[in-house]
Write a protein that binds this DNA or RNA. Structure first.
Lengths: 360, 360
DNA sequence: AAACTTTGCTAAAACGCTTGATCACGGAAC
DNA sequence: GTTCCGTGATCAAGCGTTTTAGCAAAGTTT
């Protein structure tokens, strides 16, 4: 019974299967053209809805039917070959997943790229310079429109040599050499100011700031913002109220004792993790948030901030926006110069760790 | 002074700039060939190191020099056009960033794809069916080798019609119709068993399980694993010890009172967020972890688990591995059938919330 | 009825690359 | 002095599109 069933006609029910044509080679323009009895040029014109193309309605319909019939999908690769410019944007990240943050950069970049008809090509380098070089090479070979070079925390970065072969934008990082590249970063000063203002609005006057020990743009910026907010409120800056600790849960916890000596009613922590530790420290000292001490953090690390008891007021790092803005800058839709990084606002997120009304 | 400086020769110092040639059109094979004084075929042969190509060493060197000189980058798009098969793998995710988890799937998929010479094309759909359709269409047009369809939490899913036009694998989800598709999911049963075993190894015999209220493969699987572990340890299953609560911090906190009535020495929580809430509840009742009550969670949500006080023992959801395994299945490197989802182990992560030695 | 104009469509080149077929040439074998 | 062979390189077709120039037929002016 295993005879050649070549010319006997298809026995299967799916006589002209529109889907999954046995995973042969994909349907091409030419095949559509043949099916519709026209030239490939005509099919192309129909597909691309060229306005000044003159095609009879009847023909147009015939082509459309053939396309549907065969389940034709245009080959985007071939398209870019002739047009010369691809519709790819590369995103190289030094830690896609090391942190919950990086995902947001991808997300923002992807949404924005999509909006303009671009596809995102991502590469994760985990900070490995060799991988990074390969990743960039790959992107260059795919003739990306440009590359977003991003870091998972805001910092200065050296620009890889090969990156310069492409149009590129730094995201969440910047070059220490001025004028070297376009960049988009979070506005740490404004963020620090907003964080402090949450406390000021709560009626607090003696506000401590637990800063990080490790140097970073965030360290300086967030402090500056704190000072600016105080100044705007007419409160003299007291260096005594600025502590420093390692920016994690342990650091926050460990800073409790020092903090309590300062006799403050409110604390602004460098980040949410420190705030989380501080919560533990305060609790152990029988103090409650926000009644005894109001707390704000920074970063809006959802999993922490939204779920602490009480939920933590904080300031968001605008990772989604950074990704999106990076794409817009790359495509020339947003203003940007090499001379100064564009700063994206860090919006305040108010929760229950600060009471709105003034304390005693 | 705005005269035509066309034929006056380049005044700029960079006479034969090897990098960034004024962002003209990219250097092509032909240009390299001309520079080296050979045919494009020869250049191609040199680049691809064809073994049975006979090229004189002298020529080979000349070509290589020209490539370096001009900063030539092969056009990967053109390459795939002629070879017929692209080097793309698509990843569609319903929540790249909604959760810290999804990033790990991307990461794993990207690393593995990379390893086999593939580039990852990602799309984030936020569960929007229209977006999803567009995303899949885009990937089909880029002639991807296949598509990874992933969800941010383990669940059954309907397979989008267009997805069938490609080779695909479900990642972190599965089709309710048996035999419909290859899939890779976390091994919830084993995970639940491992979580329970951590407590058993700690010497505990009366172990509560706070399960989720919302139905999910995880709910059933994690319970099953708990029962399996007890049975293996010769401990009769007591339904009284299984509570249910909404799987978040509030739920865990709210379950404290009920839990304390059960008179247990250990608790296994459906997830880390519940454990986080439970910590608060226990603390309010003057109980300490792990001395009074040992706790394990599930998910290994780093930001929580590693930073609670004490750090939480838990079980990892293998998102990275899911992404990587998905790619391997797609490429046919791992065994896989349509009949049953491949399960990836959820490794235990022991921290300080369970003491190793037996309690009173 | 001759001269244009419009309409509907196609031929063919081009995009950057790979690859099987082919060729010229010098040396070895007969 | 043919014939054969190995070496080193080129030719040319083809991958799936887009796009410009152009052609034939039909319609519109004079």
């Amino acid at each position: 019974m295993v005879s050649k069933e070549k010319s006997t006609g298809k026995p299967a029910p799916a006589a002209r299967a529109p889907r999954t044509p046995e995973r042969a080679h994909p349907v091409t323009l030419r095949e559509v053209a043949e099916a519709a009895g026209v030239s490939t040029a005509t099919v192309s014109l129909v597909i691309n809805q060229k306005k000044n193309a003159r095609i009879a309605d009847e023909t147009r319909q015939r082509v459309k039917d053939a396309i549907r019939q065969l389940g034709y999908r245009p080959n985007a690769l071939a398209k870019t070959l002739v047009s010369g410019t691809s519709k790819f944007i590369g995103l190289v990240a030094d830690g896609v997943a090391t942190t919950p943050f990086a995902g947001q950069i991808i997300h923002g970049a992807q949404d924005e790229a999509w909006k303009h008809g671009y596809a995102l090509l991502i590469a994760n380098t985990e900070g490995n310079r060799d991988l990074e070089k390969d990743a960039i090479a790959m992107m260059l070979e795919y003739k990306v429109r440009g590359i977003l070079y991003s870091t998972w925390f805001h910092r200065p970065t050296a620009i890889p040599e090969t990156l310069r072969e492409a149009d590129f934008v730094l995201v969440n990082c910047f070059s220490p050499e001025p004028g070297a590249a376009r960049a988009v970063v979070p506005d740490e000063e404004q963020g620090g100011q907003s964080a402090t203002e949450i406390l000021l609005r709560g009626g607090h006057r003696r506000i401590a700031f637990i800063n990080a020990t490790i140097p970073a743009p965030a360290k300086d910026g967030r402090l500056q913002g704190y000072q600016d907010a105080l100044e705007a409120a007419g409160i003299p800056f007291d260096p005594e109220l600025v502590l420093e600790a390692y920016p994690d849960q342990e650091g926050g916890y460990g800073a409790t004792a020092e903090l309590l000596k300062r006799n403050v009613t409110a604390v602004y922590c460098y980040n949410d993790r420190m705030a989380m530790g501080l919560y533990d420290g305060l609790r152990e000292n029988g103090l409650s948030v926000p009644d005894d001490i109001a707390v704000v953090g920074f970063d809006n690390q959802e999993v922490i901030a939204a779920h602490l008891r009480p939920p933590l007021s904080t300031v968001s790092l605008p990772h989604y926006e950074l990704g999106a803005a990076g794409v817009r800058m790359l495509l020339g839709l947003d203003e940007a110069s090499n001379d100064a990084a564009v700063k994206i606002a860090c919006p305040a997120v108010e929760r229950a760790s600060v009471t709105a009304h003034s304390p005693a």
